[in-house]
Design a protein around this nucleic acid. Structure first.
Lengths: 112, 112
DNA sequence: ATCACATGTAATATAATGCTTACACATGAT
DNA sequence: ATCATGTGTAAGCATTATATTACATGTGAT
């Protein structure tokens, strides 16, 4: 019974998550991966997107930890990189923002 | 019994929301406003932030509709602009992303 | 050898964001 | 008049984000 579910604690975790989901193509990617995992080229075809651009978006999603990549050798012997969506559940409310707000210093540039 | 709660339907609504919350200072602003409404100069002092910069952040929050501004004349006769946080509740899950994903065309530049 | 298909990155161009400094205007109190 | 306090915006700059084009590598099948 493994729990691979995404755990968010700091406001940095949340800003990364929101940033990752602030672009329609990244929501699309996440949506496509929610159905089943895909390898990069396959995903690029589905998305009608070049791989270089796809990598840029995947990087953001991966940094936010809502997506994970793993290598696998196919039957034909080729190295494939599979991406999958991690399970998560965030209840986004004013209460959550109030909570996160407490840990954000008024002056981000100093160390308050 | 008025319901001023935020209603999100399209993926544009969601990307705007996520984009608005992708910066720590905007989460901080939302958190501060969750306590009580504030007028702009007051908020700027609390945030240790210049008004020009605050306006930039407020604009994003307002475009995402999670914050609303309204003018009021103070007792001393000055025009004040009050900002308040609107109530909202978003359940952010893979299912939501899958749902939104359906309405996002694979090629954003054309009109599919 | 060359093709099809998989991996990835480097370099570049363009657009959008974040932030600062400097303005401008209005009102009430001194 | 000028100060304190409120409103707002315009211009410039530095950085980041987005997107493209071009390149380099490896495997298996023909």
């Amino acid at each position: 019974m493994e729990n691979d579910s995404l755990i968010l604690s700091s406001h940095e975790d949340y800003t990364k998550l929101f940033d990752a989901l602030s672009h329609p193509m990244r929501i699309k990617i996440a949506g496509v991966l929610s159905e089943k995992r895909r390898y990069v080229s396959e995903l690029a075809k589905i998305m009608h997107m070049s791989r270089p651009l796809l990598y840029i978006h995947l990087k953001k999603l991966e940094e936010a930890a809502i997506v994970t990549g793993s290598y696998e050798i196919s039957e034909s012997g080729k190295s494939m990189k599979y991406y999958a969506l991690r399970p998560f559940a965030v209840r986004l409310t004013p209460e959550l923002l109030a909570e996160l707000s407490k840990t954000i210093p008024v002056d981000l540039k100093s160390n308050d």
